[in-house]
Design a protein around this nucleic acid. Sequence first.
DNA 1: AAGAATGTTATGTA
DNA 2: CTACATAACATTCT
Length: 265
Amino acid sequence: MPEGHTIHRLARDHARFFAGHPVAVSSPQGRFEAGAAVLDGAVLTATDAYGKHLLHHYDHGAIVHLHLGLFGRVRHHRGTPPEPPDTVRYRVANAVHTIDLIGATACELLDPARLEALTARLGPDPLRADADPDRAYAALQRRRVGVGRALLDQRVVAGVGNVYRAEVLLVHGVHPELPARELGRTRFDGIWDTLRDWMARGVRERRIVTVDRDELGLPPGRIARGGATYVYRQTHCRRCGTPVRRWDLAGRWAYACERCQPPPA
DNA sequence: AAGAATGTTATGTA
DNA sequence: CTACATAACATTCT
């Protein structure tokens, strides 16, 4: 489920829920026992997000690194939480809030050196104020693969996933198979700006919405699930009605409207 | 109720 | 260093 906006949203929420007071940390099924032992009763002082990686910083210096992978989630309960199901790895709670981590691929303690190594191998994250788009552009210039592949490579840009990839390339008329190094600077700048805007919107709205309500003449009210994208999981391009092509690109579905995004020669 | 899904890493090969 | 294929890992929802 998660692309970068989800992780930034979680970072913000967790800081709000827990900042300043001790928390109870547990590992209900014993899959993060070492961590829970170190963390229980500590104060969660700060949270941070780099791309799809979430960090919890505790007052005694411990850092928890979380990555939700393809289907990880964090569930939030207000008030008395339910008994944790078998799949809960890491539970953080105070008198009011409880969060349960489920299905994550990473849930581990990190020392500062390993945190540094982690952030060093990530490309700039459009949601971070310290992001340097020049680095992403330079990385693109070095790749021979298509832009579609390159955009999912977290060393190029951090936080972009399959939905934003499909959508941003559609809106900018770029075919996923265009060699990354052939993407012009102007076009790249447009893509970067769009990603930043959309992902910030994703944090606010807690979901991915790339479509423009006025452009599509959508009625007021919540945009239906499945109706929030132009090509991703669409059968026809929401802009021009052309059938969408979907194909396996390095193990992920790629989507394109080959009228809006002419294939490279 | 099998299968799909907004992801990454490690490993071996070229 | 870049690329690519394959396997492994993690759950929920239809």
